[in-house]
Simulated assay, not measured.
Amino acid sequence: MPKASETVLEIDLNALANNYRYITSKIKSGTKVLAVVKAFGYGSDSVVIARELIDLGVDYFAVAYANEGETLRNASVATPILVLHPLPFNFEITVNRCLEPSIYSRKMLEEFIAFAEEKKQKNYPIHLKFNTGLNRLGFVENDVDFIVERLSKTESVKVKSAFSHLAASEDLKEKQFTLTQIEGFRRISEELILKLGYKPLLHCANTSGIINFPEAHFDMVRTGIGLYGFGNDKEENKHLKPVGTLKTVISQIHKIEKGESVGYNRGYIAENTTRSATLPIGHADGIPRSYGKGKGWVTINGEKAAILGNVCMDMIMVDVTNIACEEGDEAIVFGPSATADELSAAINSISYELITAVSQRVKRVVLRK
């Protein structure tokens, strides 16, 4: 891979292809694949990721909000796009750009039907979200009769899929809870299909569900974090490759004498003579202030350099006392060898938070096949 001469996020499409193929090797032939590309493609570039996944054969995309789907449509992505958290304010964008809303409450169903009727839509695809234990969004089992009764009075919409979301599929200590969720979704789906009179697509497995619960694959599976190289399990991570590598460079090296301080609020005071390196990346780029003061590191020439003092908006300072390096050398924040899993654990966080926090001002560099 090329050496960085500025702060960049490299997006490795070979890694993405590897991850897609590994994940799809876990499902039976004919099962559809929905790729989650919300949050700028988990902090990378949703358009670049989507285009590559289309070439790999993906069936569906999911985004969180309508404007994310609009970005894909503006890039000529024609694949069906599920909007996981639509808001009435964005119904116009949703319909104009042929996005497919998740309908998760009685109020949302009434409002979207009214909008679709006003726009003279017929059989507009909607997706019914059922809450089976995550308790975030979703209808409950007792809503089925209301849903079917309301749908029977309109031709403006038609159910494309019914789905739920597993709360702890990566945690095998919660296996029984997950199995209860799966069975609950199966029961709701059977009732819904019987009363609707037709069968929509069914899906509830996320990345960890795909890996740990084959009985939850149904008609389609959803994969997000796995595509980007993280399987929520050390053994599974061996089969996956992180797509993003966040790199920066050493701007300046300082000699800090004993008793001198580094950074705002004198966040680090040298107990001995120290060499510090200043890097052009900070909390405005996605390195939160929860790092620093010994928490977190970057890798320089294969060695860990601890973050000194407080993270600044545009810079961090790291300890290179025992590292052979010079100004202009590359520093890796996270990537295949220094993973976001490891770095996020230093502040009791998760890879999702770290990789999705990478600022849009950081230059994206696509590594192609």
Rank of each mutant, 00 (worst) to 15 (best):
L82M: 14
L82R: 09
V83T: 06
P86F: 05
L87N: 10
P88Y: 07
N90V: 11
T94I: 12
N96D: 15
R97A: 07
R97P: 05
R97C: 12
R97Y: 12
C98D: 13
L99V: 05
E100I: 13
P101F: 06
P101Y: 08
P101G: 07
S102E: 14
S102G: 15
S102N: 15
S105E: 03
R106A: 01
K107S: 14
M108T: 03
L109F: 05
L109D: 04
L109S: 01
E110R: 14
F112Q: 00
F115P: 09
A116F: 09
E117L: 04
E118G: 02
Q121N: 04
Q121S: 07
Q121A: 07
K122P: 08
K122Q: 11
N123T: 06
Y124V: 05
Y124W: 11
Y124P: 04
P125N: 05
P125M: 11
I126W: 08
I126M: 11
L128T: 10
K129G: 13
F130Q: 11
N131P: 12
T132W: 01
G133E: 02
G133Q: 10
G133I: 06
N135M: 03
N135Q: 13
L137S: 12
F139T: 06
F139C: 06
V140R: 15
N142Q: 13
D143N: 11
V144D: 01
V144P: 00
D145W: 03
E149F: 03
E149M: 14
R150D: 02
R150W: 06
R150Y: 02
L151K: 09
L151A: 04
S152F: 08
S152E: 15
S152P: 11
T154Y: 11
T154Q: 09
T154D: 11
S156K: 15
K158R: 15
V159K: 00
V159C: 03
V159L: 11
S161V: 09
S161I: 07
A162D: 02
A162E: 07
F163W: 00
S164L: 03
S164C: 03
A167W: 07
A167G: 05
A168V: 02
E170N: 12
D171N: 08
L172K: 00
K173S: 14
K173P: 14
E174S: 12
K175R: 10
Q176H: 10
L179M: 11
L179H: 13
T180I: 14
Q181N: 11
Q181V: 06
I182H: 10
I182A: 11
G184H: 11
R186T: 04
R186S: 04
R187K: 14
I188V: 10
I188A: 12
E190M: 07
E190K: 13
E190V: 10
L192S: 02
L192N: 10
L194Y: 10
K195F: 01
K195G: 13
L196N: 09
L196P: 07
G197T: 04
Y198D: 05
K199S: 15
P200E: 00
H203D: 11
T207P: 00
S208K: 01
S208R: 07
I210D: 12
I211E: 01
N212R: 05
F213K: 05
E215Y: 01
E215K: 01
E215V: 10
A216P: 04
A216K: 06
H217C: 08
H217Q: 03
H217E: 06
F218K: 00
M220W: 02
V221I: 14
V221A: 01
R222V: 13
R222N: 08
T223F: 00
G224D: 09
